[in-house]
Write a protein that binds this DNA or RNA. Structure first.
Length: 237
DNA sequence: GCATTAATTGGTC
DNA sequence: GACCAATTAATGC
């Protein structure tokens, strides 16, 4: 397409597992095979049930990864930013994607085919090791999430979701760097948009949160953390 | 500016 | 605490 060809050699994403293990010439003939995909905001680039088409890495941008439930209800599994992996659960055995992935803003993706990934993993042990750590970490997060969903109150889940966004994307000028609709927060926290709205407005009244339209800002991070501290063993999930 | 969508609030089960 | 309905604010065309 026009211009944007993501190149591993000039990429700035130090957290990207490919970039991290991009050992100059050793992996170059592989990374050259990747495909760069530019997504518009709202674009559904991974469709639940569609055949697996390799692994995706975010070169630049943000996306949400979700599973669709019964009556149109959505469960957002995670949000991803620069350097992160999407579609890793379909890698290997999986024939079809079990998740949806939608770009939340203009996003550039690097797509590696399964074959390319396989030969890279077989050739570069450092990369394989990092992948193993990544999968283990993902599983850990997933288990932590189960506990949270079962034991936290809605208020705590919403606070947790907001803190998660802050951890992952940070704030600038007093507002979170990721703008989500109330419904998206609800779909992530496992509740309804009405509940999210109510909790946000009370947190606002309590002076813990700032809200201007879709923009959300955390005023008192330690206080919010303290509120969920009882449940949380401070494993940043 | 109008029309669709999102945010908000109140109420019921 | 989810679901529904009504109102209002925001945003796209």
């Amino acid at each position: 397409m026009t211009g944007v060809k993501a190149d591993c050699s000039t990429c700035k994403n130090s957290t990207c597992l490919i970039k991290k293990n991009y050992l100059s010439e050793k992996a170059k003939h592989h990374t050259d095979k990747k495909v760069t995909i530019a997504c518009k905001k709202g674009q559904n680039f991974i469709i639940e049930g569609a055949p697996v088409h390799g692994l995706f890495f975010v070169y630049k941008g943000k996306a949400k990864v979700a599973k669709t439930g019964i009556n149109g209800r959505e469960q957002i599994v995670r949000f991803v930013g620069d350097g992160e992996i999407i579609g890793h659960r379909g890698f290997g055995g999986g024939q079809f994607y079990q998740i949806n992935a939608v770009a939340l803003e203009h996003t550039v993706l690097c797509n590696f085919s399964n074959d390319t990934m396989k030969s890279m993993l077989k050739e570069v042990p450092e990369l394989t090791y990092d992948f193993m750590l990544f999968y283990a970490d993902e599983l850990n997060r997933s288990e932590t999430k189960v506990k949270k969903f079962a034991q936290m109150t809605v208020r705590e889940k919403v606070i947790d979701a907001i803190l998660y966004i802050n951890r992952k994307f940070g704030q600038s000028n007093g507002f979170l760097n990721l703008q989500l609709s109330r419904k998206e927060i609800a779909d992530f926290a496992g509740t309804t948009d009405e509940q999210v709205i109510r909790i946000i407005s009370s947190l606002k009244k309590e002076g813990l949160l700032l809200a201007e339209g879709k923009k959300l800002g955390i005023v008192d991070i330690p206080k919010l953390k303290k509120e969920i501290a009882d449940h949380n063993f401070f494993l940043d999930s």
